[in-house]
Write a protein that binds this DNA or RNA. Sequence first.
DNA 1: TATTGTTATACTCTATAACTATA
DNA 2: TATAGTTATAGAGTATAACAATA
Lengths: 174, 174
Amino acid sequence: MRGDERLDAEQLAAYFTLSEVGSLLEQAVTQQLRDEGDLSPIQFKILAGLDATPGGAQRMTDIADRIVYSRSGFSYQAGQLEQRGLIARSPAKDDERSTLIHLTDAGRDLLNRVMPEHVALVKRLLFDAMPPTGMQDLQRALGPVRDRLREAPPRSARPRARQVYKKQPPEASP
Amino acid sequence: MRGDERLDAEQLAAYFTLSEVGSLLEQAVTQQLRDEGDLSPIQFKILAGLDATPGGAQRMTDIADRIVYSRSGFSYQAGQLEQRGLIARSPAKDDERSTLIHLTDAGRDLLNRVMPEHVALVKRLLFDAMPPTGMQDLQRALGPVRDRLREAPPRSARPRARQVYKKQPPEASP
DNA sequence: TATTGTTATACTCTATAACTATA
DNA sequence: TATAGTTATAGAGTATAACAATA
């Protein structure tokens, strides 16, 4: 056990500030997305990510990995969004196992309606209270952290449990 | 509609950095707390908050408000923690409607076991990658934001739906 | 044999509304 | 009448493990 694995008072204060701002911001954003578009933060992320995709379509697995999500969880969310007509699925040509996801017009409309309010909220809560140097301060402090965190990717889909031999019927041992 | 409710490129970048660091950090912390102590982040917050309480005990509602939580949700979590023997409830003397919560020895033990690893993880993921000025940068940028966010408290328990007249039996209208 | 996506299942968490007891 | 806490209920979200289809 190393002896330097503690936080000094200054670090602790910075950590608490970061946590608290993160929580409060997330809470406000969550509620707004729910109110304005009936979207969970994850659904919003999925839609926004698709919108930002040049080609417009992405593989299920790639999205799940990007937003750090289990495959089944993403399947569920994709189902929800598809039911509401916000996204559509199409088979990938080069690999018939894959499914591509893209925004529908309705999905883009919803995003276009929700996004300005989202941005305005972030501006009001985050940037209007921030000193002029805040953006640079944040980038200087957290940019390297982000890069480091990306290096050790907390794989959404952990190496999938490999195909197991055969289903072992859960009966009492003979 | 005002025209200045947008984010410039620098703000957008800072926002994305903040979001991403927040998510990745939260994800790592969540997993560690689960692995090391079988605690959700909220349960950890409750325990840590109780530990930091001078008197050692707090009212249910006050805790729920502090961590931004519905009363029923907090009741559920308190039940979970009580079942595991990590907290205990006792009646408040001055107001017999209130219930006080305090850590048990087992709860303090668990916290003492989990906390060093939590701190070490934060140190490793957040501070070891941060430049020397990072702590001050963070405080300068986010301190005012935190203060502002606290001012407009996103009340956990929204004004409770006031006692409604009488239960309206949900039968078909006559 | 490995990978992509789906599904069944089981579980955790959450909020709403109604309820009891106390103020 | 209002407040503190509980509970029933119902629903959303999540992960695991198994599955079919394809590589």
